[in-house]
Nucleic acid binder design. Structure first.
Lengths: 188, 188
DNA sequence: ACCTGAACACCGTTCAAGT
DNA sequence: ACCTGAACACCGTTCAAGT
């Protein structure tokens, strides 16, 4: 499967770094040393930083989309899927207190090249579309209604992750999910 | 009131910039040219970038705390206060699609000096404490219960602002507030 | 094709020295 | 006290040259 090992490594390292330090925090010299190459070599695989950023963000949402699809196949119960959805964000926190790449890049919106912005939006889109589908299945709501609700859940979960990260405390994330359930935003 | 005009100008410009580009995006040369001085002069008022960042974040939560206090005095109805609470976040978006400084700096957590992190936490603290008070008044809930609910509202509103910013579209923020109300997170 | 040393223009930051 | 020129270290990027 791995057609190109170096390119693979660059993408993986860039993703990890961007989840901790953002797009602005990505720098080619440090990235190169993680991979074991020199900075100019990265340009052989990615002509500009914008290309690398877009590639990282694209892969990020593609991997997420795949994981969400798998989930639907494995778990028939929509409620179980919803519970596992928030676990994706929780796992980022477990893995070095990392933030969702989409959230970090949303904050960096003003500094992002257009092609990167587009991938960040795609990430939000696939999350919301998936949530809307699952919500419709769980509660039998109409498409437009579950779409709005899906958007709200996505924004709220992202906000919860951001807040937990700011205190480096995963229990805050869990508490917030409980509160969302108690308030009625997430199904009980 | 303005004991020091230059220091004042630096703080104001830094706040504006940090809400668009974050702490990492703060740069002394550009900041200086906004104020009309040379970059090294800033160091006369703030010994390090960390000091400036902490001062900006401190003032940010102090101003917010003051505004929230004023609101309580002006509007007896807690529901009215809650509605106006989200308007604070909306106004940032109206003003050049800016993000809450606390949110941006939460994303940048790994790159923040300790003294800045402390002020970012103070911002969250005063927001949550105020929300808890108003919720208790509005719904007569117990202190611990409204505390949890307050945390959830704060995280969700921050997430909504982040999402609206990522699309430069304020109507997304309004839609999300409506959804939060419809779902039961915000009082109707 | 894949990789790198050296260099360029630039930027954040520091410091010694000015008034 | 207030301010700055000059310098330092760094970064994204380019390019000529290596394999």
């Amino acid at each position: 499967m791995k057609v190109n090992n170096i390119k693979e490594l660059i993408l993986k390292s860039a993703k990890q770094t961007a989840q901790s330090h953002g797009y602005n925090g990505l720098n080619f010299r440090e990235l190169a040393s993680m991979v074991g190459i020199k900075a100019p070599t990265i340009y052989h695989y990615f002509p500009t930083k914008a290309d690398l950023g877009a590639a990282v963000a694209k892969r990020y949402w593609e991997e997420t989309a795949e994981e969400l699809e798998e989930m639907l196949k494995k778990f028939a119960d929509p409620r179980e899927c919803l519970r596992r959805y928030s676990q994706i964000f929780r796992r980022s926190l477990e893995d070095g207190n990392r933030l969702c790449l989409g959230s970090f890049m949303s904050a960096e919106h003003d500094d992002l090249p257009e092609e990167v912005k587009a991938e960040v939006q795609a990430f939000a889109d696939i999350n919301i579309a998936w949530l809307a589908r699952v919500l419709a299945a769980a509660e039998g709501t109409e498409a437009t209604v579950s779409q709005k609700r899906a958007q709200a859940i996505f924004a709220a979960v992202a906000g919860a992750q951001l807040m937990a990260r700011s205190r480096s405390k995963i229990s805050i994330f869990d508490d917030l999910m409980d509160s969302y359930r108690a308030a009625g935003l997430l199904p009980a």
